[in-house]
Amino acid sequence: MDMDWMRLPIGEWAEVVVDWMTTYLDGLFSVLRSIFDGMNEGLVWVFMTPPFWVIILAIAVISFFAKGWKLAVGTIIGLLVIVSVDQWENAMNSLSLVLVATIIALVIAIPLGILASKSDIASRIIRPVLDFMQTMPAFVYLIPAIVIFRVGVVPGIVATIIFAMAPAVRLTELGIRGVDKEVVEAGYAFGSKSGRILRQIQLPLAMPSIMAGINQVIMLALSMVVIAGMAGAGGLGQDVYSAVQRIDIKLGAESGLAVVIIAMILDRITGGFGNRKRKATGPRKVAAADSTETTASVPAKTA
């Protein structure tokens, strides 16, 4: 049966758009390419220059402050396992890619989330776009990304940014919208500006939700590591990819395990920062006599 008459040439349109972009926006894209490349190179340099144990200690210290000594110990053991299976260099490459992609994704996503929380119209426009970005199979982004940015680490970063950005936007919007309306109203009632209310009330109170979004972005970015490896990004993804091609169980297990270890460490660290209990700003002088006196005097007045 000939159905040609009702075929929509969406593929052709996409091609036209990408062609147009490579022709006319080449300048912009080469600037972006050098920025992303530069950031990645810089981070790789930071991770690779000192001996591995310095980096392990540094990450362990961060884990300690995020959650405590148990996580710090776990981090050291996990990273030593990566070193022992000779995946350290790949792991640091992948870590750089994930961090660069995450930072750029957040720089775009958090302001978008704030915008969506302030304006219903913006929210209604942004939501389907996010759905599209998140559900379109991530491989598909690679094709135009490779065309536009050429093989290397940059198409991997770009595809990761697009794929991983959505939860940060959503959870930022959700967090800010979820802040107690009366508290925000109190800010306005005392004559505060809306920018100041955002900084002093809405963002701090939305922080747990925003941190959950950041955590999700990092996890999604890690899941993109393998796909980025297919585009020539190197790192753990490349080893996983070549293990699949060569049916190399040994290499697959080792590089896959390294991805899992990195993912768990990053998840626990960001989760730890998200749930951290705030501390009193001043010295907590709850001298026993002091507090009992106050509590006692309150009901006393009642009677």
Binding site: V183, A186, Y188, F190, G191
Partner: peptide
């Protein structure tokens, strides 16, 4: 905002305190 700062403060039904600030920082907010 000037009128609110100079003339009108407000007390809310559900208190509307800033939960991430101490009592003294809440009181000093205005």
């Amino acid at each position: 905002r000037r009128i609110r700062r100079e003339h009108l403060s407000m007390v809310f039904q559900h208190f509307a305190l800033l939960p991430h600030r101490t009592v003294i920082d809440n009181v000093a907010y205005g």
